[in-house]
Design a protein around this nucleic acid. Sequence first.
DNA 1: TCTTTATTTACCTTTTAATACATTTAATGA
DNA 2: TCATTAAATGTATTAAAAGGTAAATAAAGA
Lengths: 104, 104
Amino acid sequence: MKPSLHEIIRARRRALGLSQAETARRSGIQQRQVSTFERGGDVTLSTLLKLAQALDVELMSIPREDTSKVESLLKTKRELALSAAPPSLLDRYQVKEDEEQANG
Amino acid sequence: MKPSLHEIIRARRRALGLSQAETARRSGIQQRQVSTFERGGDVTLSTLLKLAQALDVELMSIPREDTSKVESLLKTKRELALSAAPPSLLDRYQVKEDEEQANG
DNA sequence: TCTTTATTTACCTTTTAATACATTTAATGA
DNA sequence: TCATTAAATGTATTAAAAGGTAAATAAAGA
């Protein structure tokens, strides 16, 4: 079935190769809130917005009639992110190396 | 500048011809929360999700690099909604009439 | 297995959102 | 202006999120 917001966010964080702790540090919220939210718990909008910013995503309101169009626009990337191996160190190192290249 | 989430939501509500009270009733939250949120106040994610459902919109996480593409996909409609005359009764009646046609 | 790092959970305190009214303040139109 | 509906605010109470710190559990790799 369709992944919910917290699953998407978790996938995004992992795709960026960030731990909850690092994400918390960057967004100025508690690591606990990251965990809470990613497991489907409730957080305030302000907390979620900080988290989103740290993950370089924007929270958008999409009319239901347009969601499928938007979905398909993001489909490929999203599938990749969702299938992104959980918290593997290997993955993270790879990302870091990629960043090195990009920055170097 | 770019309208923020609460402004988009307010525009959406108005475009649907709903009052805060009616929106509150449909979403099961308090009219006060609708007002609070629409003026930029903080609410919990669960509250926002109920509101979104009542307004028939979905909250999506969009990678920043893709936001412009999504924006342009929704652009025309959104501009219409944002310019939608505030809480005019006339507007609401028009919407209702349209619905009549659609349902009748 | 041992080690390290990530994630979840615990405890306690403080802050704040949510609820349930009611009421004021504004718009809008007759 | 008057009547009506919408939106913002008041107060008091309750529920829950956030903050701070730490510890337990789990996951992954050497």
